[in-house]
Each structure stands twice: as structure tokens, then as C-alpha cells.
Design a protein around this nucleic acid. Structure first.
Length: 261
DNA sequence: ATGGCCCAGTGTCTGGGA
């Protein structure tokens, strides 16, 4: 099974790219972020025509996540537990039957948190990460294949960006952000890309501005984090960098992992 | 030349992204 995550930066602006990528990459499950659409506005017909089920959790204007899948999910839930006041559409979970059990797959869009000195934005990011940790603990207790995939807005280590000096003080790279991400890893979650590659130049995002793509001035912020039961069955992982050179690209590219289930 | 963008809706500008 091939499972991918991709921040598409607007599903309606990206529908041609998305369909072309679905056909060429042929993932079984796709976690999308920043669909920037309400559920009723999501272009589901085009995607269903390619043989995918569509589950969305959208809102007006920005944010929004979705899970596309060749198999029909057994269960779907929307929203990250832990704060009933949180209106932002950043989390959806689906459960699929596989040989001998199930796999749980979540599509998450972790808050950016900038500017870091904002009285609301950075504390919201850190609180969201705490909620994610609590959720992960509850799911890890099930001892099932479990995949937390998405745009984490976290640069985990200095080698996950081209120029760490540029990111000092940024909410994506602040010590507290990285510490919170390590807490997730320390629960037993494994980063699929780092588990399968030593390449120091692996990025998943290049800014539209300042020729970042042409200069390979990128950052690695889109991650598939695996439970031990999923990590046991990981075969390979890849960053589908070529998609960034397509016409009218998202600023993120798909990241995918292949499992022997 | 050390900067250069893009998306959706509130809509010919603003807010948000990273």
C-alpha cells in the first residue's frame, strides 16, 4: 500500500495537477492539506472518476484537510480532540481494513505559528501539538498500524533546511517547536523519510518567492510519522520532488511511503 | 541587482501562508 501526504495549497486551483499526479503516482491513500474549500465546494467528481473515495473536513477560505482512498474507509472522524472551541479544520482520521486488521491514517495540518511573538498564534501552535501528542498516545495504545501524515510546519533538525540561520526565531524551527516534535518521536513514532534515507538535501516545501525552488532553498516540513506496527511494515519512502516543477505548482510536494500491507 | 508569490473571499484589496 502506498500512502502519501500533500499540502496542495487550494484544491480548486490545483485540481489539474492533483488528477495528473493521482494517475502517475497511483497512491492508495492520499492525505491532503490546505484544501481551502468548504466540503460542498470540493471537486469530488473529478477525483471519484479516477477511482477514489473522498472524505473532507473543510472550511471557508483557508485550512481544510481531506483523505482520498481507493478503498472505502470503515470509519471517518473529523477534528483533533482536546478543544471544543477550536473551529479550524486541520484534522481528519480514517480507518481501513487490511489483511489481519486495520490501518489508521490521519491527515493533519499543524498550525504555522508565525509570527512567533504573536500573543495567539504561537501559543495555539504549541497547544495544538500538545493535543496531537495526547491523541497519538491514545492511538498508540491500540498497538495498530497507525500513520500521522501531514504538513507539520516543523523543521525537525538543522539539516532539514538549506540555511538554518534563516530560520532562527521562526515558529517552524524554534527550540520549543522542535522539542514538541521530539516528544512525538519519543512516543515511538518514526519519521518514514528519515528511516529510509541519509540524504541531507531532502525538502518538501520551496517558497514561491525569491527563486527558492531554482536555488533549492527548501525546508522539510511534511512528514509521515509511523507507529511501531506501521514502521515494522515500511518498505520505502520518497519525496516526489518533480511535482514542484510542474506548471502552476503547489509550494509543497507529495511525500509518500510504501508498506507491505 | 541579494529580490522575485500565490490563494480565496471579505473581491481590483485584505488576510494568511511559511
Amino acid at each position: 500500500m502506498k500512502i502519501a501526504t500533500w499540502n496542495i495549497n487550494g484544491v480548486k486551483a490545483r485540481i489539474a495537477n492533483l488528477c495528473e499526479w493521482l494517475e502517475s503516482s497511483a497512491p492508495d491513500v492520499v492525505c491532503l492539506q490546505e484544501i481551502k474549500s468548504v466540503d460542498e465546494g470540493f471537486p469530488r467528481l473529478e477525483i471519484e472518476a479516477l477511482g477514489y473515495h473522498v472524505e473532507t473536513h473543510g472550511q471557508k477560505g483557508f485550512n481544510g484537510v481531506a483523505i482520498l482512498s481507493k478503498m472505502k474507509p470503515d470509519e471517518v472522524s473529523r477534528g483533533l480532540p482536546g478543544d471544543d472551541q477550536d473551529e479550524q479544520a486541520r484534522f481528519i482520521e480514517a480507518v481501513f481494513s487490511i489483511d489481519g486488521g486495520v490501518v489508521r491514517i490521519c491527515s493533519l495540518y499543524l498550525p504555522n505559528g508565525n509570527p512567533a511573538d504573536d500573543p495567539v498564534k504561537y501559543p495555539y501552535k504549541l497547544a495544538w501539538m500538545e493535543r496531537l501528542k495526547a491523541f497519538a498516545e491514545s492511538r498508540l495504545a491500540l498497538e495498530e498500524p497507525f500513520i500521522l501524515a501531514g504538513d507539520y510546519n516543523v523543521i525537525p533538525e538543522p539539516h532539514d533546511c538549506r540555511d538554518p540561520k534563516l530560520w532562527e526565531g521562526d515558529a517552524l524551527f524554534l527550540p520549543k517547536t522542535r522539542q514538541s516534535f521530539r516528544r512525538l518521536e519519543n512516543l515511538g513514532l518514526v519519521d518514514a523519510v528519515r528511516a529510509t534515507s541519509d540524504d541531507p538535501l531532502l525538502y518538501s516545501f520551496w517558497d514561491y518567492q525569491a527563486g527558492a525552488w531554482q536555488k533549492n532553498n527548501g525546508i522539510r516540513i511534511d512528514h509521515l510519522m509511523l507507529s511501531p506496527e506501521a514502521s515494522d511494515r515500511l518498505l520505502s519512502a520518497s519525496i516526489e520532488k518533480h511535482v514542484r516543477s510542474w506548471e502552476k505548482p503547489s509550494d509543497h510536494v507529495p511525500v509518500a511511503a510504501v508498506f507491505d500491507f
